[in-house]
Design a protein around this nucleic acid. Structure first.
Lengths: 146, 146
DNA sequence: GACCAATTGTTTGATGTCAACTTGTTTGGG
DNA sequence: CCCAAACAAGTTGACATCAAACAATTGGTC
């Protein structure tokens, strides 16, 4: 009988940039997980490692702002990364409110691996775009999040 | 002394389309919430109402697939929408596994309001894009999310 | 120098989402 | 016919995230 299932209509939803953003992010993040989940690196963790590598000694609040997470979300994440021996919290001597954060040797090593995988992932996930198109896309996206 | 706080460097993070997607979605969804939160409509709820309006009698699983949520996430959401009197679950007579879903009068009314607000929101959030650019952006995003 | 506002990391509670499993129902091949 | 496989909705547990409240600490102002 082949019920001839037409996919349900999405209506005006297709006009909303937010919906397309969500679908795109869903697909890209899923692909990221399949590429880096194996080494225990989620998109959020990867962004933390990158920023930490580039800004040794940064404080938790500044890190949270940089990766656009809540400062309270940072706590359990750094706890976990600390337990894995990837990140060190070092209490500041000059201002006892601050924690300075550093990647350990192991953290740097994992980041190197993660970078290679993330780079490959990025290539695959953007294989449907020319270099020009990708540059264009990033520029357009930055108009919102900038 | 003006500590001349440079914002922390994001490193290679800026090359990753996933990161830009997240920032953009964050900004757009936040704006959406500020425009429709007042009437208790989140992006997910709005997408459900739209698809429900366009596909009366659709089943929960099909709805979940359409809006790209997990089947199991649909349950508490429909419970809540049901309690608000916006959606009706109607057990199928031909296949007792299925629930057919319908917007109530109140659901339709709320959707009308939500649509007006969402449309205004969309205009504001895309005010930084020309019509051409938006069309281009949506086309590029669809290459990922299909 | 003593209060007061701002800042930092943390804790707690609420929410939204997924994945795995359960239960009831249908369907199709032997 | 019958039983196994497929399937729908629901339940449970885990997890990430945010917002609000909190304690400790600093800095500025009178």
């Amino acid at each position: 009988m082949a019920p001839q299932r037409k996919p349900p209509s999405l209506g005006c939803l297709t006009d909303h940039v937010g919906f397309h953003l969500r679908l795109a992010q869903l697909a890209v993040f899923k692909h990221f997980e399949s590429a880096l989940g194996e080494i225990g690196v989620s998109p959020a963790i990867y962004s933390v490692l990158e920023v930490l590598h580039d800004n040794p000694g940064i404080t938790q609040s500044k890190l949270a702002i940089a990766v656009r997470l809540d400062r309270s979300s940072m706590v359990p994440m750094l706890d976990k990364l600390g337990k894995r021996g990837l990140v060190e919290r070092q209490a500041s001597t000059t201002d006892r409110r601050h924690n300075h954060l550093f990647l350990t040797k192991e953290g740097e090593a994992l980041l190197a691996d993660a970078r290679a995988r993330a780079s490959a992932h990025e290539k695959q996930v953007c294989s449907c775009l020319s270099a020009e198109e990708k540059k264009n896309l990033l520029a357009l996206l930055d108009r919102f999040g900038g």
